[in-house]
Amino acid sequence: MKLKKKEQTTICLTVNGRRYVESVEPRKLLSDFLREDCGLTGTHVGCEHGVCGACTILLNGSAVRSCLLFAVQVDGAEIRTVEGLDTEGHLNPLQEAFSEHHALQCGFCTPGILLSASELLEYNPHPTTEEIEEMLSGHLCRCTGYKGIVKAIEKVANRNPKFTHES
């Protein structure tokens, strides 16, 4: 594939189980693509250089920074964003636990953390507190409410060992 500056190309990918066919130029960040072209504004944009973790999404099941990927790179990929966590309007157990344990204050960092936590629980259904904190180190919460977040994830880890982000 060869694209000149500002030359548009068509990419085709699956986001939250829905197929999107959109036109993008090479420099378009995946985070902007999800928000502007797919209309999925649940993916938050914080620092735009990979530090804060607000824009974290699942790319083929792996938690990654969407501000450090170009949309053109994810042609053919399967992506999950915070909008894809619920089932027909019902919060999933992780989201329920976040609500129950006051794991969000302003909510800006929440979408990214939910996706990272989903990946963690998918591969490690019973993480230790230390492992949860290690995962959480990739996210900044400026309300500094980390304790509630850890509690919420611990609750899911203990209550429902078969938890998966697949709805």
């Binding site: 594939m1 060869k2 694209l3 000149k4 500056k5 500002k6 130029e25 090479p26 420099r27 960040l29 902007d32 620092c47 735009e48 250089h49 170009f70 053109v72």
Partner: peptide
């Protein structure tokens, strides 16, 4: 402040 890359040619060999 938005933080976006400048335009570039994109090649995927």
């Amino acid at each position: 402040m938005s933080v976006k890359p400048a335009s570039f040619d994109y090649y995927r060999p």
